[in-house]
Every structure is written in structure tokens, then in C-alpha cells.
Amino acid sequence: MAEPAIAARNLSLVFGTNDGPVHALSDVNIDIAPGEFISLIGPSGCGKTTLLRVIADLEKPTGGEIRVNGVTPEEARLARDYGYVFQAPALFPWRTIEGNVMLPLQIMGLSKAERQERARKQLALVNLSGFERKFPWQLSGGMQQRASIARALAFEPKLLLMDEPFGALDEIVRDHLNEQLLKLWAATRKTVVFVTHSIPEAVFLSTRIVVMSPRPGRITDIVDCDLGPDRPLEIRETSEFLRIAQRVREGLRAGHSYEG
């Protein structure tokens, strides 16, 4: 078997707060294979974003072990092994769309010509060709988020980490971007870890769905989601889709029943 893209063993993270310790992650174990599309789903406070941030070395775990592409998250970050898409587009308003996509490449120290070439390529991949010279405020929210995905892909990383990237968008735009993301994933075969709180979104996109629950943040279920690579939006009406969605919903409910 190929080396896992992400491997977590007994991973835990405790935040010390004024109200005592908060167990953001507790005993998390997961292996993610290269090329998988994994969704982390769960209610607020279940640690799904924290887990993503640990993978990205934006948070340090307090216990357990985690490897990203076979190395520690910090080494992976320094090697620019992943692209991270935040909840908000976080485009720099003083840079053009092209300038924003070139930002990581500029930091990487690539030549201007190469930066431009790569930026154009990534913008074409998210259907934003022709918008290179626009400033972020001239684009709609969905287009801005697509630009931020292009920016995350600029390094051409093997791993794409996405933190509720479409959470702030309306449903029509979200459906559209979900379709585009699937195509992108099919075209690039990257490993994707995708945080969401939408069950249909998770089922539609993923190869596996990791169901999490809060207090302490932990994994309660991992649901295989084998709908095949070709997924038109209509697949959401099929019984297979609904069966998986039902299983995820039950997992979420079971997690909640621990609260007393």
C-alpha cells in the first residue's frame, strides 16, 4: 500500500482557557490515502476545523502523532506540501486576482514569468480566465472563493485542505462550485480534506466521510461513500445517495446523544 497522505495516531489537542481545559481533539485516529476526497463533518465545536489546522501546522497537537505525506506537519508546511482554502476568500484587496494567485509563488521565490504562467494556468482551472486584472471587490463571492482555490493550487501541492470553503455562499452557487470542485479533483487527483457542516455537500463530494462530535472533539464514524467518480447533481436524488446521507445523519445524532 502506498504511504498514507495523512496518518493520525491517538491525536489530541487540549486548549487551556480561563474556564479550564477544552478538549478540541481527543484520541483521533485516521489514515487518508493519496487521491482520496475526505470530508470532515460535525456540529460546531467538534474539532473538524481544529483537525484541519493541525494537519496544516496552524495548531500544535498536545498528544499523539500525526504525519503529513510521511513527515511532520511542520516539515510538510515548510516543504509547501499543501494548499489551504479558508472559510473566507482572504484575498488581499490591494492585489489583482492574478496578483493574489501569484502571492504564494512570489513568497516561494519564483521568477515573475513563471509566476504569471502558473497563475494563468490555475485561474483557467477554476474558470476565471479573463479576470486576471480585476480586483477582488469586482468579483462575486463565488468567484472570489474560486480565486482563493486557484491560489491554494498555485504551489501545485499534493494535498488540498479546505475549511468550509463554500459555507458563506448561497445554495445555487454552492451546487455549482461543488460540481466544479469534483471536476477539478478528478482532473488533478489531489488528496482533499474538506471541512463542512452540510450532509449533502459531504456525500456529493467525498470518497469517505469522517463524522465528528463535540466535547471532546472526536471521530464517531467513518462512512464510505462509493458513488463512483462521475457524479452529476441529480445523483443526490438516488437511493444510494440518500442511504449514505441517512447513515451520516445517524452518526451525527449518535454523537449528540452523549450530551446530557
Binding site: 496544516a56 496552524l58 509547501r80 489551504y84 479558508f86 473566507a88 482572504a90 513568497i107
Partner: peptide, 12 residues
């Protein structure tokens, strides 16, 4: 914090 996190993911 978001913009700073972004640059951290680039190891700036």
C-alpha cells in the same frame, strides 16, 4: 489572523 494564517501556510 486569517491573513497571517494564510501567509503561515506559505511558510513566509
Amino acid at each position: 489572523a486569517l491573513a497571517r494564517d494564510l501567509l503561515r501556510t506559505y511558510s513566509a
